[in-house]
Amino acid sequence: MNKQRGFSLIELMIVVAIIAILAGIAWPSYERYVDRSYRAQAQASMHEMAQRLERYYSQTYNYGTDGSDQTPSAMTPALSPDAIPSSGTQRYALSVTVSGNGNNFTITATPSNAQADDPCGTLTLGQDGTQTAAANDCWD
């Protein structure tokens, strides 16, 4: 009697097809999760910068020089990082724009590289707490 060992080609192809279907469903969900986590990290850094700017304002009574559109670390040594994440492939570039005789600021997080196709687009945070994005529900 001839005993069969191992898998037949049909059984192997069925397993490969099931794995391909599961991967096709799981991969986009995973990518959205990663994008959302980097967006949350950028938002946290933006809020941290706003707090540091407020601390700077309480000491100097201004946020900086009008028309300054620069990276946060160049504006004030206490402000960093100017990229999200601070190491590895950059996902967001952060900048601060000061206006109104040094009484207003806008922090901008611009997506780049792998984050460039994020539907939320550029995120902004103003000194009055206004939060904007290209899509709804980006600041949850």
Rank of each mutant, 00 (worst) to 15 (best):
residue 1 M to T: 12
residue 3 K to G: 11
residue 5 R to P: 02
residue 5 R to L: 09
residue 9 L to V: 14
residue 10 I to T: 14
residue 11 E to N: 13
residue 13 M to Q: 11
residue 13 M to C: 13
residue 15 V to S: 14
residue 16 V to I: 15
residue 17 A to I: 12
residue 18 I to C: 15
residue 19 I to H: 11
residue 19 I to T: 15
residue 21 I to E: 15
residue 21 I to Y: 09
residue 22 L to D: 15
residue 26 A to I: 02
residue 27 W to G: 11
residue 27 W to A: 15
residue 28 P to A: 12
residue 28 P to W: 09
residue 29 S to V: 05
residue 29 S to R: 10
residue 29 S to I: 06
residue 30 Y to Q: 08
residue 33 Y to S: 13
residue 34 V to A: 08
residue 35 D to E: 14
residue 38 Y to W: 11
residue 38 Y to T: 00
residue 38 Y to H: 12
residue 38 Y to E: 14
residue 41 Q to Y: 05
residue 41 Q to T: 12
residue 42 A to I: 05
residue 42 A to Q: 09
residue 43 Q to F: 04
residue 43 Q to A: 08
residue 43 Q to V: 11
residue 44 A to D: 08
residue 45 S to M: 08
residue 45 S to L: 06
residue 48 E to I: 03
residue 48 E to A: 15
residue 48 E to D: 15
residue 49 M to P: 01
residue 49 M to Q: 11
residue 50 A to S: 12
residue 50 A to E: 02
residue 52 R to P: 00
residue 54 E to S: 08
residue 54 E to N: 15
residue 54 E to Q: 12
residue 54 E to C: 03
residue 57 Y to H: 06
residue 58 S to F: 03
residue 61 Y to H: 05
residue 61 Y to P: 00
residue 62 N to M: 01
residue 64 G to S: 02
residue 64 G to P: 00
residue 68 S to C: 01
residue 68 S to E: 05
residue 72 P to K: 04
residue 72 P to L: 05
residue 73 S to A: 11
residue 74 A to V: 03
residue 75 M to Q: 13
residue 76 T to F: 04
residue 76 T to L: 07
residue 77 P to C: 00
residue 78 A to R: 09
residue 79 L to R: 00
residue 81 P to Y: 01
residue 82 D to G: 05
residue 84 I to L: 02
residue 85 P to T: 03
residue 86 S to I: 08
residue 86 S to F: 02
residue 87 S to C: 01
residue 88 G to K: 07
residue 89 T to F: 00
residue 90 Q to F: 00
residue 93 A to P: 02
residue 95 S to L: 07
residue 98 V to F: 08
residue 100 G to R: 03
residue 101 N to Y: 05
residue 103 N to P: 02
residue 104 N to T: 06
residue 104 N to H: 07
residue 106 T to D: 08
residue 107 I to W: 06
residue 108 T to K: 09
residue 109 A to Y: 04
residue 109 A to G: 11
residue 110 T to Q: 10
residue 111 P to N: 10
residue 111 P to E: 01
residue 111 P to H: 05
residue 111 P to V: 03
residue 113 N to G: 06
residue 115 Q to S: 08
residue 116 A to G: 09
residue 117 D to G: 14
residue 119 P to V: 01
residue 120 C to K: 11
residue 121 G to Q: 06
residue 122 T to S: 13
residue 123 L to C: 08
residue 124 T to P: 08
residue 128 D to N: 14
residue 128 D to K: 10
residue 131 Q to L: 10
residue 132 T to S: 14
residue 132 T to F: 06
residue 135 A to F: 02
residue 136 N to D: 15
